[in-house]
Amino acid sequence: MTEIFSGLIPYILTGLQVTLEVTVLALGMGFLIGLALALLRVYGGKASSSIIAVVTMVIRALPHILLLLLAYFAIAAVVNLTPFWAGSLSLAIISSAYQCEILRGALLSVGAGQMMAARTLGMTRLQAIRHIILPQALRQAIPAWSNEAAIVVKDSSLVYVLGVPEILRKAQYYSARTYQPFTAFIAVAVVYFLLTFLTNRGLSALERKLRTPG
């Protein structure tokens, strides 16, 4: 029992920082890419919109682990990135496809009248998007985005296959060394649960804080 607290948990937690970094990078970069794609889909020309629609559809149709491996080897062929960065970037690209859909829906949920009203005041399209549409759309997007955040927390475990020492890999090492797979994986399960739980709680709090009165 003491071994769990003195050995297992501290050992797995050495991977926690990597898990958190991969998650934050994938979510953050995925948000920026996804937002750019969503804006192009909603406000861009027909060509860019169709291309993005096809690409995001393909990404969303394939298993994440397969995409991760494909992206990893594609990236490795072009630039020399560490598995950590290649893995995070791959997860970001995967997540951006989902975030693009979330944000597209949110952008479309803001009525066309808002854009018209902004334009009648003399705002440019860009000003209207930035100051009128986005603040409303992003608020709308929080619940769905929170779901995506939970998925990315869990998907961060996929970089395991690239040899990145995040918590699942640490648990794997521990299990191989001590022949206690069950204890090791239960501990990791608890960590993932807490991460997902806290992420959702945090985002719900943010949603309440940003809610427009009335």
């Binding site: 009525g111 009248g113 018209m116 009203a117 334009r119 009648t120 005041l121 003399g122 603040p135 409303q136």
Partner: peptide
């Protein structure tokens, strides 16, 4: 056109106040 619209007030049937 953005400059020209500044001084043409427009009021909509469905109001379109900025909700946020």
């Amino acid at each position: 056109i953005n400059k020209a619209r500044r001084h043409i007030g427009f009021v909509f049937q469905d109001v379109n106040l900025f909700n946020h």
